[in-house]
Design a protein around this nucleic acid. Structure first.
Ligand SMILES: [Mn+2]
Ligand SMILES: [Mn+2]
Ligand SMILES: [Zn+2]
Ligand SMILES: [Zn+2]
Lengths: 162, 162
DNA sequence: CACGCTATCGCAACACGTAGCGATAAGAGG
DNA sequence: CCTCTTATCGCTACGTGTTGCGATAGCGTG
């Protein structure tokens, strides 16, 4: 559904003049609120939650309303400028224009996360593509579990050392 | 972390006398509220959200409090009698004593879900086990995407038929 | 530039959980 | 059966989003 437009800028950076034009071209409207959200996104790297973005918008304009921010994030995701996955807690985490689609690994013990590049993510979902004809949304995928470090820490300390 | 005790009952059924005994053995307490939640779970098949369980408890006792239900669900999951994954919307979905650990496929277009048996789920997470030493939590895994039916429907109807 | 359509806004109410707190009661021990 | 410890309860307030609605304001058109 989400269309990913071509981009002429460095990866990880939103070309906001392009966003503005595309929004207008679709009969949507370029508003001060949307421009502000885009500014915040421009200054954002990596993963962010919606409430973090609301907070950052409020730093620039205390009058910022959460519903406006969340609705704009929906629009931008629909247009392909954002994607999201879910943290272990189930909360949405937005990715600002990831240079390439990637999936995630998150350790439920230490909380650290890793990104799986497109190739590796592809090899993960290959079995379901073959057996079910299922077209997985790689960017949405987060695999929860225990990382190598935490697994071996558990093995070393099977019970509380009395 | 969650310990999965041996069970002598049919799969998909909670042996609530065993839950009671295990709760007491751990210094926890067997209360009327917990018994009621167990009764509701006994009558439940497949996947359920927390709010659905609150609602079903209220049918039996209108005085049911959400926080009590959610806290009990946490306890039962800790003890290994429940597991949860997340729907496309990110909400928790509980599985009552699944006969075997299984992962999920969910179509974001039609909403249907499929269960991946343990073998298939294993083959999905095998690449990350090999390359990262990552021990994935299969029961928590939901792969979102488009099912075979919806993919071919899209291909057949590339644009709105004018 | 003024007009009109309607997308978007802010607000208030709601939904779903979570967390802290003082009161209650489970249940172990005598 | 009484006592004591403390796990659990219900309550309230909070956090994070979502939704419906009436008012506002983009922006395409003449
Ligand atoms: Mn979860
Ligand atoms: Mn999602
Ligand atoms: Zn870890
Ligand atoms: Zn489908």
């Amino acid at each position: 559904m989400a269309v990913r437009p071509d981009r002429s800028v460095a990866s990880g950076t939103i070309a906001w003049t392009q966003v503005r034009d595309e929004i207008r071209a679709r009969g949507l409207r370029w508003t001060a609120q949307r421009r502000r959200i885009l500014e915040v996104l421009e200054a954002t790297r990596g993963h962010v939650t919606g409430s973090e973005l609301v907070e950052r918008c409020r730093e620039r304009d205390p009058a910022t309303t959460p519903s406006t921010v969340y609705r704009t994030l929906d629009v931008l995701e629909e247009l392909g400028y954002l994607s999201h996955s879910h943290s272990a807690a189930g909360r949405e985490e937005f990715h600002v224009m990831p240079e390439a689609e990637h999936a995630h690994l998150q350790c439920r013990v230490c909380g650290r996360t890793w990104e799986l590049d497109a190739d590796e993510a592809e090899s993960v979902v290959d079995p379901v593509a073959r057996s079910h004809g299922f077209a997985a949304d790689l960017g949405h995928l987060t695999i929860l579990g225990r990382c190598a470090v935490c697994v071996s820490a558990e093995a070393a300390e099977p019970r509380l050392p009395a």
